[in-house]
């Protein structure tokens, strides 16, 4: 059974033929478009390593059937930095605050943080940031740095008038 879907990924249009309807958005990004920055952790919606922005909203790509997202706009970690290689404020803040150790969960953490800041519900309350980031597990335990990085990046982006 053939299904053809159109996706905009990191600003670039793609048409993808799905010979098999079982393909998740995560597998499509990694295996078909070779965007391997989005990580496959649990593959069951429990760890957040596969977080991408789907039509502007942070989502677990492992639990999204690609076939159900014809026409969607997807932003992955590869599309976050500026064209000249300038890091996104959230990426820069993760480095500045040592918000990672092994780095496997980091693309998902960063995309989730970008989504959280765009949602605008956490404000400057670290408790709300921790709660808002609770869908992203970090087995190295870099949570303290992650919370600091999110708050710092949010402050810098507000100063520059950026939403995401």
């Amino acid at each position: 059974m053939g299904l053809s879907i159109a996706l905009t990924v990191n600003g670039a249009p793609h048409r993808v033929e799905l010979e098999d309807p079982r393909v998740t958005l995560l597998d499509l990004l990694r295996e078909r478009l070779h965007l391997t920055g989005t990580k496959k952790g649990c593959d069951r919606g429990q760890c957040g390593a596969c977080t991408v922005l789907l039509d502007g909203r942070r989502t677990n790509a492992c639990l999204a059937l690609a076939a159900a997202h014809d026409g969607a706009d997807v932003l992955t970690i590869e599309g976050l930095a500026g064209g000249g290689g300038e890091l996104h404020p959230v990426q820069a803040a993760f480095i500045a605050h040592d918000a990672l150790q092994c780095g496997f969960c980091t693309p998902g953490q960063v995309m989730s943080a970008v989504g959280l800041i765009a949602e605008g519900h956490a404000g400057s309350d670290p408790e709300r940031v921790r709660e808002g980031m609770s869908g992203n597990l970090c087995r190295c335990g870099a949570y303290a740095g992650i919370t600091e990085a999110v708050l710092d990046a949010q402050g810098r982006m507000a100063g520059r008038g950026e939403a995401a």
Binding site: G45, T59, N60, L63, A64, G115, E119, G135
Partner: peptide, 9 residues
């Protein structure tokens, strides 16, 4: 319930 990512979907 769930996480922010799941609640978005």
């Amino acid at each position: 319930g769930a996480s922010a990512q799941l609640r978005n979907a």
